[in-house]
């Protein structure tokens, strides 16, 4: 009896989860792209940044990934960016980075600190599992304390829910 009930809940929960995510992803798509600073149209500026430099990483790889509201899972777009980050970091093995986790302003302060730490951890974990040594990646959580987009609308909040991989040393 207990099992059946729970199983029912589980199914419902999973369906809800996926439906919500699907809906959210679609809705947020343009915003995500808008925030991605050149990610995905990498051909444009390649020549102007020295390979292995901070500029190269930020412009041609993409230094940040974005999250859905109150989520810490990686979107497919985020996973793409992070795969590129991992490849780049493996190529330039002297570079060390700090992953900054951030949350948007539409949450409470304490919770957002922990939520943004989870985001930073997820990104760090991804990079490690894709071959970047953990001792080259530190992480820090900023909660909602450092927004980059300042309007009060989803188009800004979606840019603030981010994890930014900041080069802290070893770049050309």
């Amino acid at each position: 009896m207990m099992m059946t009930r729970l199983a029912g809940f589980k199914m419902a929960a999973i369906c809800c989860c996926f439906l919500a995510l699907a809906a959210c992803s679609k809705k947020n798509q343009p915003d995500l792209d808008a925030g991605l600073n050149g990610q995905g149209n990498g051909g444009v500026d390649v020549g102007s940044q020295a390979p292995g430099s901070k500029g190269d990483f930020d412009k041609n790889v993409g230094d940040r990934v974005f999250f859905l509201n109150d989520q810490t899972s990686l979107t497919p777009e985020a996973a793409d960016t992070l795969t590129k980050q991992a490849d780049w970091l493996k190529q330039y093995s002297g570079v060390s980075v700090q992953v900054e986790g951030h949350a948007d302003e539409r949450g409470t302060r304490e919770y957002n600190i922990s939520l943004s730490a989870r985001r930073a951890t997820t990104v760090r974990g991804f990079l490690i599992s894709h071959g970047v040594p953990g001792n080259r990646i530190s992480s820090i959580a900023y909660g909602k304390e450092r927004p980059v987009a300042l309007c009060d609308a989803e188009q800004c909040w979606s840019q603030n829910r981010r994890a930014v991989t900041v080069i802290t040393g070893g770049a050309k």
């Binding site: 304490e110 600190i113 922990s114 730490a117 989870r118 930073a120 951890t121 760090r124 992480s139 959580a141």
Partner: peptide, 27 residues
Amino acid sequence: NMSFAPRFSPDGQKVLMSLQSDDGRNA
């Protein structure tokens, strides 16, 4: 790991707070 959200106990002798877990996923 990081610590946050502190508050004193009523007798002032202790401080409650959150600590992020080792794997960084929970507090």
